[in-house]
């Protein structure tokens, strides 16, 4: 083919065309790629999140019985695509979407059962003692002091119902005394610890939580993602 070419490309030509090509290539490709990948850049690179980072009410913990986890629904407001918040800030009188967009979480609360023997690989989970409810909850219903609140919180399992395997919602089976995932049969104990099935770890815990003076639990969106095989968020739900 080379002999067909009348004017061989000089080094200057090559560099010039290369530079020109690189510039025009960048102009043509960077905007659309960044446009499509902007959520990836925002979440993975800049570490932003679509979920409201404020406190959300879960519910009163006083009625929680030891040995039977209870499920609470928590709605975290999310800000995605419709930019309602920005529009409301700029033009507060303008029309707003009728429904507020939220992501609904099911939060399992239970009293911690002390771990007697740490589970080994393939052992079928931890050997647990009897779950204990903090005694202070039987004495008063409100006006908890800071230390009492810390004690209650320390005894509480705050678990996401999103299975650590593929995110299906897990459910408590009282007769089995285990959490069971409907999709592929992941099993967890009352502390959310791994018992069996495909999940690579135990259930996700909410890491930011507080008990208020009236004994109500509030949480923020955030999980202990560290102990997983890969540090994955539960993402959805």
């Amino acid at each position: 083919m080379a002999e067909l070419q009348k004017d061989p490309i000089t080094r200057g030509d090559f560099l010039g065309f290369g530079l020109l090509g690189a510039i025009s290539g960048a102009i043509l490709t960077i905007p659309p790629v960044a446009f499509v990948l902007s959520p990836v850049i925002k979440t993975n690179v800049l570490g932003q999140t679509d979920i409201d980072q404020g406190w959300q009410r879960v519910g009163p913990v006083a009625d929680l019985e030891p040995g039977t986890p209870d499920v609470f629904e928590v709605e975290f407001p999310i800000e995605q695509v419709y930019s309602d918040r920005e529009i409301q800030e700029k033009f507060s009188g303008s029309q707003k979407s009728e429904s507020e967009f939220t992501v609904r979480h099911a939060v399992w609360l239970s009293w911690k059962a002390p771990v007697k023997i740490q589970g080994q690989q393939g052992s079928g989970g931890d050997i647990l003692g009897e779950p204990e409810k903090p005694a202070i909850l039987d004495q008063k219903t409100s006006g908890f002091t800071q230390s009492e609140r810390d004690e209650i919180l320390g005894q509480l399992n705050i678990l996401s119902n999103s299975c650590a395997h593929l995110g299906c919602p897990v459910r408590w089976f009282p007769e089995k005394h285990e959490f069971l995932c409907p999709c592929h049969g992941g099993l967890y104990d009352i502390n959310g610890g791994y018992v069996g099935g495909p999940p690579p770890r135990g259930m996700y815990n909410y890491t930011q939580a507080e008990i208020r003076e009236d004994g109500t639990l509030y949480i923020k969106h955030g999980y202990d993602i560290e102990p997983g095989l890969n540090k994955q968020q539960p993402y959805v739900v």
Binding site: V40, Q232, Y235
Partner: peptide, 17 residues
Amino acid sequence: GGYVINFLLGGDVAGPA
């Protein structure tokens, strides 16, 4: 993996995006 799911979700939660 982490990029793929955030690309599909359009963020870090399943929502309008």
